[in-house]
Design a protein around this nucleic acid. Sequence first.
DNA 1: GCGCTGACAGATTTCAATATCTGTCAGCGC
DNA 2: GCGCTGACAGATATTGAAATCTGTCAGCGC
Lengths: 194, 194
Amino acid sequence: MPPETLTAERILETTEEVLRRYGPAKATVVDVARALGVSHGSVYRHFRTKAALREAVTQRWLDQAHAELSALAEDGGRPAQARLRAWLEALFAAKRRKAGGDPELFATYMALTEEHSSVVAEHVAVMVGLLTRIIRDGAAGGEFAAGDPEAAAQAVWDATVRFHDPAYAAEWFTPGIDAAFSAVNDLILRGLRA
Amino acid sequence: MPPETLTAERILETTEEVLRRYGPAKATVVDVARALGVSHGSVYRHFRTKAALREAVTQRWLDQAHAELSALAEDGGRPAQARLRAWLEALFAAKRRKAGGDPELFATYMALTEEHSSVVAEHVAVMVGLLTRIIRDGAAGGEFAAGDPEAAAQAVWDATVRFHDPAYAAEWFTPGIDAAFSAVNDLILRGLRA
DNA sequence: GCGCTGACAGATTTCAATATCTGTCAGCGC
DNA sequence: GCGCTGACAGATATTGAAATCTGTCAGCGC
């Protein structure tokens, strides 16, 4: 059906399928090439290394999350407190959805996290950037204490680590996690208030 | 030199030495027995399984931390805010000291954490209990908002996970960690205030 | 009697031989 | 010319046989 030209995009789609089927430990570049009906040399024409290929898949996957969360962060109309709470809830919900619905891709993302990949570092930077925007808005509007918004955003990120770091994914499906999450949320929001 | 009677205590001391020397992955019950100059059957006379032996070593090791932190938590004379800050700082300092000074024993503790050992669960419960005491005192004295002190203590524990969960030990020695730690501390303390 | 030993079964780990994979590149064929 | 192939070297993973370990227990010796 698709003997079309081999593009980076088509390789990424197939790599996702292969990762979903075999998991990050078993999926090989040869598997991807086989699924595409090409030699593995052709894959290396588009991605210099296997690590680069995995990073690109993760990048693509993380970018989906950015769209939704950007929208929430930029909605300047709503009070910053409500926006921050909604943002943190959306983040947790998205992560939980990914962890439960795409376990193999999520495992890939976890592996990258442990490798200190620049893609993950970039993702964290973007996320903290979105938090910074909300907190800056809140400080400008008098809702939040006017300190260093960037430092505050980093502190919020650090304090909610248990609810977005993939290392804790196993705990996201245990009873009581929602109560724990809102308790931390409340604490943080009170801490930010002017 | 010590052909004295074989006691649980003597076994634990030797197990610590063996763990320090070989690390949790390599240390075996046979190694411990050899170091003690007895057969490994004798070790099983005092500890039913290898897991029980490792748990006991970890227990002993965690108990050292309890003493210092208990004293800080119970010093009713000082303001709760200062006490909480000092407690969290002492916790972080102690963990960091253990991680750096006793890497092999720390790895054992980490392995147990991943196994969901009851010893670690118990340790966490004790720690949250100490936090609860400080927060309850603070609420009674009007320093902290009077909510559910136990839930608040759990939230504080969760929000500081990055600074006491052994999974993050590698980050405890990176530059900027102290600033991140005090930013989270400040956020939490502001959040607790009445 | 009582604590220890040491042999044992089954589970786990180690090790080395083998197979597979990653990344490169000369050259084929459109 | 240009994108793809497929053979190749070195690195990594798999496999199965051998070694070691865990946990048990009958019996030795003090």
